[in-house]
Design a binder for these strands. Structure first.
Lengths: 335, 335
DNA sequence: CCTCCAAGGTATATCGTTATACCTCGGTCG
DNA sequence: CGACCGAGGTATAACGATATACCTTGGAGG
């Protein structure tokens, strides 16, 4: 049905290899032939079959980004930056969700799908060590996020502890006495949540401050909805709370809504700091003080790591930690 | 390097076809053999090569969603819903950005990439008629968004005019005298922008109200940033403006920030209505009155349309219009 | 005049699956 | 007891591209 390379070759009166060579910019073709073939490609509307190319040669020019959730702005922003960077080298990004479908059959297919990319950047939030360990070493992969992942992979993680510590220290410094942690908890392993919780604790220890009683508000999901309800209820029960460190900006935005639901003001009554520095953070009112994970740096390093791995699949894995930075805005009080 | 089907077959002492049959749930295999093969698949860590499967049989179980921007929450939410729905039928979603890269070579590759999916849902915002028309008819495609697209495709569009009319009428009804349109304009063809602008006009005509002078605030992009600045500047220059209909929720959130930058209050001084009903809309303060495009309906219909098309590639194209609905919240004044 | 070479090409095998057609049993039925 | 059948399986040819090795020219150099 569809036009193939042979169709083009036949029309041009050459062999398929010549067409292939033209399309891949290989040298052994005269200028005249090259042009004739390019014209025919246009005329016939020929499109290369990437499955066939991949089968034979292992190149598609596509990189995969696997995220836990499509509807999480952090990953949208990450994808956009990644896409821009890859475009510079003529590559293309496809984003997939890591459906945590526990049905083995579907999970297997997901693994197989990864092989259709030249390389994969995998945000491992919510995935477990063993799932990841099942990935074949032949596939270039960079892991983003959690820290308890198989060491054999190249990986980048945020400095979660430091970020949380900066955020919490900032609140304490600005006069907060009871900084609750929205979305905290301890999962045992070094997950994003565990680490940020650790940073929150550490900031208190640093200043010799006591943790507030029941200071951790656990959340089903890091969503605005749950955060809003949880924070509102807590403030109604416990007027001593005067600051919220939210584990993500989304949680922070939810928390801000919850604070207002409780009839309190940000930052006069309750201060808030988030984590992620989403585009949104600058535009809520008041603008959100937050921790910037330096996404540009992460994205750049991820691609560099991937390229080095594609280049040499045997090289030693590298583990990078991205810097973090406090961005002071309106949800915390001026000094 | 990687384990192939022959490796499994050899290990099991059967032919590749038997392995293939097992993996595809075909009937002619004894239970014992089936189990033996499944065990070996596990043991050898075999993963099917989807490029090969696709080359031979045109099935990958992946559906593509092409969006104009990764970092636009509307599409994130759309993707998440779509993904959930497709998972129900064992399929998987990959999201790509339609790089408007005008380099012909890259554009060609993008077209080719589409062919690696069983079907594609294409948000055509920002693409032009001729680009779309280049898509081969053999690929099942559903178009989302703009209305000036080749009729041969199945497509769904929002009722943009009606939504904008509802939004504007609501503002006028709540006492607004000068409703400016943030992000409006007329591109000539029936783009989202043109249509919503038309709805804004229509609402004024319906009530015999005059359009405010210079009532359209054009925007480079439908982003919070630009909207904020534009709205702030306008309000400073022109205190007569008492309402903003924002062409998207993102623009609305930017507008709200701009209104506050100008020292005014929402909704007491300036009312705001958005369009999209993002998750975010409920959580900003005050909560955003907006137009709900019934994404659930859109997603459901898109998949249904795609399935019908996959089933019968010759069927007549269908053009659907999604219903819209006003969601009243806190950025407009109570009756 | 012969050798050699580069430029411009071609023929063929191959990548890993699946569709198709076929083969081989042991049993059943008339 | 022979014909037939279904269950369980196999051999082979695609699918559309690319890597590899080779082939043909028309000169240039000796």
């Amino acid at each position: 049905m569809a036009t193939t390379m042979s169709d083009v070759a036949r029309a041009a009166g050459v062999s398929v290899m010549t067409v292939s060579n033209v399309l891949n910019g290989k040298p052994r073709v005269s200028a005249a032939t090259r042009q004739r073939i390019l014209d025919l490609v246009d005329e016939l509307g020929y499109e290369i079959n990437l499955s066939a190319r991949r089968l034979r040669s292992d190149r598609t020019g596509s990189i995969g980004l696997i995220v836990p959730r499509f509807d999480h702005p952090y990953f949208g922003e990450l994808a956009a930056q990644l896409s821009r960077l890859l475009a510079a080298t003529g590559r293309h990004l496809a984003v997939e969700q890591s459906d945590a479908s526990k049905e083995a059959e579907l999970a297997a297919l997901s693994m197989a799908r990864l092989q259709t990319y030249d390389g994969v950047i995998l945000s491992v939030v919510g995935l477990d060590h063993d799932d990841i360990d099942r990935i074949r070493p032949s596939l270039p992969v960079v892991l983003l996020g959690e820290q308890n992942m198989p060491r054999r992979f190249d990986q980048i993680h945020m400095d979660n502890v430091e970020g949380a510590r900066l955020a919490t220290a900032h609140l304490l410094e600005r006069g907060a006495r009871h900084v609750v942690l929205a979305g905290g908890g301890d999962e045992g392993h070094a997950s994003m949540m565990t680490l940020r919780t650790r940073g929150w604790r550490a900031a208190h220890e640093d200043r010799g401050a006591a943790l507030p009683p029941a200071g951790i508000l656990t959340l089903e999901e890091f969503e605005m909805d749950c955060a809003r309800v949880r924070v509102r209820d807590r403030l109604r029960d416990d007027p001593s709370v005067d600051a919220v460190f939210a584990i993500t900006d989304q949680v922070a935005v939810g928390a801000m809504a919850g604070i207002r639901d409780a009839g309190l003001r940000v930052p006069q009554d309750v201060q808030v700091v988030g984590f992620d520095n989403l585009a949104l953070a600058r535009h809520v009112t008041p603008a959100l003080t937050t921790i910037d994970p330096e996404n540009a740096w992460i994205v750049e390093q991820a691609v560099a790591l991937l390229d080095r791995r594609i280049d040499d699949r045997e090289k030693d894995p590298e583990h990078l930690v991205s810097p973090v930075r406090l961005v002071e805005r309106g949800t915390t009080r001026p000094r």
